[in-house]
Amino acid sequence: MDKRTDKKAGKRRRTRKENWAGYVFVGPMLIGLTVLTVIPTIITLMLSFTDWSFIAGIDRIRFVGFENYSKLFGDRVFRISLQNNLAMLLVVPVQMGIALVLAVIIDRVVYGKSLFKVLFFMPYISSIVAVAIVFQLLFHPSYGPVNRFLAAVGVKKPPLWLADVHYALPSVMIIMAWIGIGFCLIVYLAALQSIPGDLYESAEIDGARAWTRFARITLPLVSPTTFFLLVTGFISSFKSFDIIKVLTEGRPAYATSVITYQLYTTAFEDLKTGYASSIAWFLLGCVLLITLVQLYGQRKWVNY
């Protein structure tokens, strides 16, 4: 055996060892993700083409093709839920706008930055269940402090908030914005800190006013962050479930129902596994679409 083949054999042995080491390191995560995410995703897809209830037993599965999906678009509750989801997307730019203004003020003007970070971030780290219960009491139609205050300042018929068909969704949206502002604020602050200060300095020497500096320097330089927050905000808005379940359960009259909540009731209360799975894949499709737009738009949208 000459030296070269000896080396080669050594390398092959090392490669095999390296392969094994790799599989051992990533193995637990891969097995977990396969069992808990990959396989369930495929099962959901298969179930979405069936008419089945999981309590009925596997032998009762009936293949129905695209029936569930075509039923979906004739389903009034689904249409209302989807509309509500789309309306709730409005929360994202609003909370981002507020967060950016706050971030600029906190970054450049105030004393005691970290205190403000903590204050505005508190809703985000608190549990949604606790937040929802507190808001239920605050916005209680008859004895909640909000309406007592409105009555005291002379509002004749204060809205019933979460109990009113017209005010319920906006109320939920206000609470969602309140929760989300802190997250956007923290991310924007980090982005602002990476903008070199001398950019502002030279702009100031050139006589640029505060608004011009904001519009010409700050906004373009945080645009990657803006894009990121917009996309992740849209995705998490589509996925929001807890707040609806605890706060309103979709009431009154489906005014606050969303896709995930309908998915939950269809699957675990009506026990329509097949139909619920088609809703699940619709949801997955929406998230996928937003993600693809992100991958495509990342390069186009972001302007330096």
Partner: peptide, 14 residues
């Protein structure tokens, strides 16, 4: 990318 709500039913079954 898979929303956790989308896979609740199969997870529950598994």
């Amino acid at each position: 990318m898979v929303p956790s709500a989308s896979i609740l039913v199969p997870q529950f079954l598994i």
